[in-house]
Write a protein that binds this DNA or RNA. Sequence first.
RNA 1: UCCUCGAUAGCUCAACGGUAGAGCACCCGGCUGUUAACCGGGUGGUUGUUGGUUCGAAUCCAACUCGGGGAGCCA
Length: 463
Amino acid sequence: MSSVLVKQIFRDQNTYLNKTIKVSGWVRTIRVSKSFGFIELNDGSFFKNLQIVVDDTLDNFQQITKLPVSSAIIVEGELVESPGANQPFELKAKCIEIEGLSTSDYPLQKKRHSFEYLRTIAHLRPRSNAFSAVFRIRSLAAYAIHRFFQERNFVYVHTPIITGSDCEGAGEMFRVSTLDFENIPRDSEGKIDFSKDFFGKEANLTVSGQLEAETFCMAFRNVYTFGPTFRAENSNTPRHAAEFWMVEPEIAFANLEDDMILAEEMLKYLITYCLDNAPEEMEFFNKFIDKGLLDRLDNVVQSEFGYLTYTEAIDLLKKSPQKFDYPVEWGCDLQTEHERYLTEKVFKKPVFVTGYPKEIKAFYMRMNEDNRTVAAMDLLVPGIGEIIGGSQREERLELLEERMKEFQLEKEDYWWYLELRKYGGTRHAGFGLGFERAIMYLTGITNIRDVIPFPRTVKSAEF
RNA sequence: UCCUCGAUAGCUCAACGGUAGAGCACCCGGCUGUUAACCGGGUGGUUGUUGGUUCGAAUCCAACUCGGGGAGCCA
């Protein structure tokens, strides 16, 4: 007899009810009396457990009742309606085979553990309810990203993880090198001789696939990247990791408005997909992690996102009755407290801020008519802050070169990027979505370390 | 990197200058429909590390390590 997945049983119970079936999984908990007992079995396919009823007609009943938590077993029995209130059906075991024993010092107990503790046992935490839910959502969300773009004929580009161009100034980078640290080659000026290194030049882990994505954008029109990204910043916050995943679409013949429409549709698609395909997990988050989660997500899906310009935002903040620690002045970057005020207090939903002063944004962003702001947008969401940053790209070669000069960037280092403007460059735009921040927003989990299977952060790369 | 709070049993916490405790977990026993099952008993500690103050330190002080929260940087 072949095994049935617990998810199949829950989704299609009429097919299996009153039939003899076989399931396999791990013991989450056992409750026993003298001659009968209950096992909660989780087989990994589904968030919920299947209740197994055992009694002393089983020839290994004594052994079964003493199984340590997390033992792996194979159960054959009849699926029947359950008289208990907490489950619609249960499996009356006829035969239980022990696949793999656990031991009584198994660290996960059947009570609530702190996220801090679970982080110290990252190899076991996917077996807990919360992380089982988080990582199934992460998987579904990744799939939803691909579906969203593929349905719209976007081409998925694998931009390089190792990059030779120190582009963008998007952040501190991790160096990639095979040089012998004990014996570093030097040139005649005493500087490190990277011509002796593996790539014959300095190389780093990517901080963004955007510049490479733009090359494919000019060939495939609409493209996206989805992969790991690295920042070597000494950030110690619940929202930053050294290794994280980013989604970066890039669209041709498009302006900033098209970019924002795409971002809004993508986020709504992502939320809807997870609500539709993992209702049990989403209910769990709503019940145990963040009581207002489902209401908030529903609100996001239903409502139009807010829009305002940076200049309007500054005016709003200046008129605000709320006192801020940092002064508000046109030309300054918005502080976290300002962003939170806008998205949490004023709009109470996701809000796009556009048209930032050129001095505080990257060189590739398109100059506006006023010659002092650029066509940039940040999407701010309640509880997380900035979740998306994007812009229309500067397609006018002279203006782009001028901006690079202001940023003291060498034209030669960006020769291929500049050629995109030379050979039939078009209006184009794109954005970056922090995948983990999206997962945090979807689940209500407040620490990025708890939405990454094995998080890498400052002073931490265990597992 | 800065500010701030914390570290006591496997886990979550109490004890706040005078013999280190509870709940859960775990072990033993009981229980014929449990739901973080229940009832009875038991095991379990160099109080993060190092140094200092004191007759006496989990408790006061200092440094370090690690962790939480806030800020900066950003996604």
